[in-house]
Design a protein around this nucleic acid. Structure first.
Lengths: 197, 197
DNA sequence: GTCAAAGCGGACCCAGGGTCCGGATTCTAT
DNA sequence: ATAGAATCCGGACCCTGGGTCCGCTTTGAC
C-alpha cells in the first residue's frame, strides 16, 4: 500500500555511503578531516546523492551512530541482566555506564565526530537524551540518592568521547583498566547512605 | 635593555581586539557565529592585524580565556582558604570544583567557544592540564582514594562548558542549585573509606 | 631629519559544506 | 512490452569563513 519503498539504487547507494564513511572514519586520525566529498567519492557516488540521502554532515554521522548503537540499545531495553530491565538498580547503573564506555572505545572516532563535530551541543542529541533518561530513571530507584538528574549527567560526562579518546589515545590507558576505573568511580558515587556534607 | 617592548599602537590594538571579542562573545547566542572578520571590524582593525596579534582563532580564544582566568588562578595558587594551598584536601577539592563551575557560569559563551570550538580536544589545552594536575595532586593526599588521575578527569568532566551551558540555558537550573548539586556529587565521591566493590 | 624595522589593513586565496539541474533510471499503468 | 511520470544521479557551481600577502604607514632610534 502507500508504503513508498525507496528505489533499489537509492537503497544500494545509501548502504554504500554508510560503509564508505564507516571505513574512512575508522582509518583517519581525526574525524575533522574526513570530507563529505571524500565520502561520496569513496562510495562511488556524487555529492548530491550523499546530501539527499542524509541531509547534511550531522545527518550522516547520526545515521552511522544509530546503526552502530542499535545492538546496545536492544540489549539495554529488552536484554538479559546485567543490562536488561530486570536488573536491580545498584547493579544496572555500573553495567549501563560500562556499556557506554565500551561502545565509545569501540567507536572512538565516530563518537568523537558526532559529539564534538556538530556546532550545537551534544546534549540536544536524541541519543544522549535517551541515555540520560534511562540512567536517571534507574538512579531514581536507588534510595538515598538525591538529584538523580544531575548525577546522571555527571556520570555520563565521565564517558565523554573526547575524554575516552584522550585516555585511550594520548595516555595509553588500556581498555580493561579504564573500565575498572569507571566502575570504581561509579561505585563510589553509589556507595553508602546519603552523603554527609 | 634588549627588552623588545611592543609598539604603542600594537598594544592598543591588541586591547581593542580583546575588548571587542569579549563583547561579541557575550552578546551572541552561539560562539560559532562570531566571525574573525567581525571581531576585526568591531575592534576597528584589519584582519591582518588580528591574526598577527593572536596567530589564529584558537589563539584569540586562549588569550581571552587566560585573561579572565587569571584572578582565579591566583586565588588557587596563593590565596587564602578554602581555595589556597593551606586548605586541607577534603575541603579544597569541592572548593576547586566550585571555583571552576562558577568561572564557567560567569563566562559561559567564552568557555564554550574554547572548549568545543577548536578541532583538537580540550584535553590538550594547557589550562585543562593545569586544573587536572592541581586537582590530581590534591586528591592524592586523601587517603583511601585510588586512581586520583581518573577521578580528577571525571570530576572535571562534570563541569564541562557545554554541560553547564545546557543546564543553565536549556534546563534553566539556577546558579545556586547547580553549585549545590556539584557539591553534593563531589561529596559523594570523596565520602567514606575505600569504595567496596 | 632620516632610515630601517615593525605594524597595518583589506584584497585575495582556498577548503569544504551545501545546492542545482540536465540527463539517466526505475516503477506503474495499460 | 512500453510509454510516461516520478524519482534519483552526479558533478559543476556557490558561498562562507579562516588564514595569507604585500604595498603603504607609523614608530622610534640615531
Amino acid at each position: 500500500m502507500p508504503e513508498p519503498r525507496s528505489r533499489k539504487d537509492a537503497a544500494r547507494n545509501r548502504e554504500a555511503v554508510l560503509a564508505a564513511a564507516d571505513a574512512l572514519f575508522a582509518r583517519r586520525e581525526s574525524p575533522e578531516d574526513v570530507t563529505m566529498a571524500e565520502v561520496a567519492a569513496a562510495a562511488g557516488v556524487g555529492k548530491g546523492t550523499l546530501f539527499r540521502a542524509f541531509g547534511d554532515r550531522a545527518g550522516l554521522l547520526r545515521a552511522l551512530y544509530e546503526a552502530r548503537l542499535e545492538p546496545v540499545r536492544e540489549a539495554v531495553e529488552a536484554g538479559p541482566p546485567p543490562l536488561g530491565p530486570a536488573t536491580p538498580p545498584r547493579e544496572r547503573v555500573p553495567a549501563l555506564l560500562d556499556a557506554v564506555l565500551c561502545f565509545k572505545l569501540d567507536n572512538r572516532r565516530l563518537a568523537l565526530a558526532l559529539e564534538e563535530g556538530g556546532g550545537d551541543s551534544p546534549y540536544r542529541a536524541e541519543h544522549y537524551e535517551r541515555w540520560h533518561r534511562m540512567l536517571r530513571a534507574v538512579l531514581e530507584r536507588i534510595p538515598g540518592l538525591a538529584d538523580s538528574d544531575f548525577t546522571a549527567h555527571a556520570l555520563l560526562a565521565a564517558t565523554r568521547a573526547d575524554l575516552v579518546e584522550h585516555l585511550a589515545g594520548e595516555e595509553r590507558v588500556p581498555r580493561e583498566r579504564m573500565r575498572a576505573q569507571l566502575a570504581e568511580f561509579t561505585a563510589r558515587v553509589l556507595a553508602c547512605g546519603p552523603a554527609e556534607r
